[in-house]
């Protein structure tokens, strides 16, 4: 099997890696960079537990060969909080009790962040539509939708730009 040298910027840190051609981005993040926030839930891009940010867009890391991510800037759930302080979205998830078992949470907070990058004031229908790719079996989604609304409202109230998401 062929091997490739790639460079990734993960949570602001640049890393050089040699990866096998069949190695998935999810496994590189989890097993080699020890960032276990992104989860294996289905392995075929159906559940969204492996969601990470590529720049400002969310991607399914279980579905992407690491070699294809060469040069990417990636943010995982661990990279959203700064100096131990939760991001606006993460804080809203805590405040609105949008977290139960927590397994889908890293993917959910990433997807929510990507949504707010794209659309800072989403309405309920837009939030629901954006969440189509992220399964949660515990909460029934209502609290998560609320959390995104609260995060958007707080951003607006504070006059934050989306760099602060």
């Amino acid at each position: 099997m062929s091997v490739h040298d790639i460079t990734l910027t993960v949570n602001g840190r640049k890393v050089r890696l040699t990866v096998k051609s069949n190695e998935l981005l999810l496994n590189v993040l989890r097993d080699r960079l020890l960032l276990t926030g992104a989860k294996y839930g289905c392995g075929i891009g159906e559940c969204g537990a492996c969601t990470v940010l590529h720049g400002r867009e969310c991607v399914l890391s279980c579905f992407i060969p690491a070699v294809c991510a060469d040069g990417w800037e990636i943010t995982t759930a661990e990279g959203l909080s700064k100096d131990g302080k939760l991001s606006v979205v993460q804080q809203a998830y805590v405040d609105k009790a949008a977290i139960q078992c927590g397994f889908c949470t890293p993917g959910m907070v990433i997807a929510s962040t990507a949504l707010l990058y794209e659309n800072p004031e989403p309405d309920e229908a837009e939030i629901k539509d954006y969440f189509r790719g992220n399964y949660c079996r515990c909460t029934g989604y209502a609290a998560m939708i609320e959390a995104v609304k609260v995060a958007a409202m707080r951003m607006k109230e504070r006059g934050c730009d989306d760099e602060e998401l």
Binding site: E78, D95, T105, V109
Partner: peptide, 23 residues
């Protein structure tokens, strides 16, 4: 009261370790 659970912060940050996260 509506109380935040002790583990909510770790889960929000992606720091909570589950079965597959240990090696």
């Amino acid at each position: 009261k509506p109380v935040s659970r002790h583990d909510a912060w770790a889960k929000a940050k992606g720091d909570q370790l589950f079965s597959d996260d240990w090696s």
